[in-house]
């Protein structure tokens, strides 16, 4: 992670050094096509926090870098409004059918957005409930926070990771929802996720124990199920984050139940065969 952050900052640094010719002031908004260097140099002067936030985000260290023009286009005119709608994000985040997108688009927020997006004024800042339904950017770039990671977490298995982004999550939800409602949903969501982790740890523990007695090739089918568990754990996470009951449940918990009993089944069979082979 640190290396990625460093890469982001390094990228900004290089751009600043290589582009000394650019000294646009506030009143001279560039016209025509601009390149990413131009954006960075000028915005570093006028809103350094924005550039810093972007530099700390995963967007700054993707390959290729998700830079200003990736979302805002090459023309300064209307560049904020063009970046805000969901389609900007969906293109890179796996398309309509990827779990990260589908868990949102099938949530209540997502469906209201789908129905009303053409009626919204996309010039409005991403705050103060200026949009009836929150889109990707409303939550993940709330109030223009260009650190896209502020609501997400690095590790799904680490419970502590939740504490780091609770304040950011609250500051978004409270535009529409009551404080107690937010608290209860956060606590419930974390518990739901922890239960999913318990299933994953139980499965992993069984394989670990069995690995003392059985060969890797015998355990291969169980390990393949374990890989599915990681996907289903992520579905629970996405279901909680995007408030999609379908991802919390059908794509999540009962799927994990199936994985766990299959791991148990595979390992029980190994013991049964061992038993019958015993002298």
């Amino acid at each position: 992670m640190k290396i990625k952050l460093f890469r982001g900052y390094f990228f900004i640094f290089i751009l600043s050094v290589l582009s000394p010719q650019l000294h646009a002031d506030k009143n001279s908004i560039p016209s025509g096509n601009i390149d990413n260097n131009t954006c960075i140099v000028c915005h570093k002067k006028h809103n350094p926090q924005l550039i810093k936030d972007w530099g700390s985000s995963i967007h700054a260290s993707t390959q290729p870098v998700t830079d200003c023009i990736s979302c805002h286009g090459k023309n300064h005119n209307n560049s904020a409004a063009m970046a805000r709608p969901d389609k900007t994000c969906i293109e890179c985040h796996g398309g309509d059918k990827s779990p990260v997108v589908h868990s949102y688009t099938s949530s209540k927020h997502g469906i209201i957005m789908r129905l009303e997006k053409n009626t919204y004024d996309w010039q409005q800042p991403l705050a103060q409930a200026n949009y009836r339904a929150p889109g990707c950017s409303y939550c993940h770039m709330h109030d223009s926070n260009h650190n896209i990671n502020s609501l997400s977490r690095d590790s799904l298995m680490d419970k502590k990771a939740a504490d780091n982004n609770e304040t950011s999550i609250r500051s978004v939800c409270q535009d529409c929802h009551a404080p107690r409602y937010i608290t209860r949903l956060l606590v419930n969501g974390e518990n739901m996720l922890e239960i999913a982790r318990k299933k994953v740890r139980e499965g992993a523990g069984l394989i670990e124990q069995a690995s003392a007695l059985f060969s890797e090739s015998e355990l291969k089918p169980a390990r393949q199920v374990m890989e599915k568990m990681q996907h289903h754990l992520k579905n629970v996470y996405l279901g909680v984050g995007h408030q999609s009951p379908d991802y919390q449940w059908w794509h999540g918990h009962p799927a994990l139940d199936g994985d766990l009993l299959n791991i148990k089944g595979i390992i029980s069979e190994l013991y049964r065969n061992k038993d019958t082979k015993a002298p």
Binding site: N188, N191, M192, E194, I195, G239, P245, D246, Q248, W249, G252, H253
Partner: peptide, 12 residues
């Protein structure tokens, strides 16, 4: 089942 697990049931 644990109630935090089956919350999604009640949502729908």
């Amino acid at each position: 089942k644990p109630k935090a697990e089956v919350t999604a049931c009640l949502q729908c």
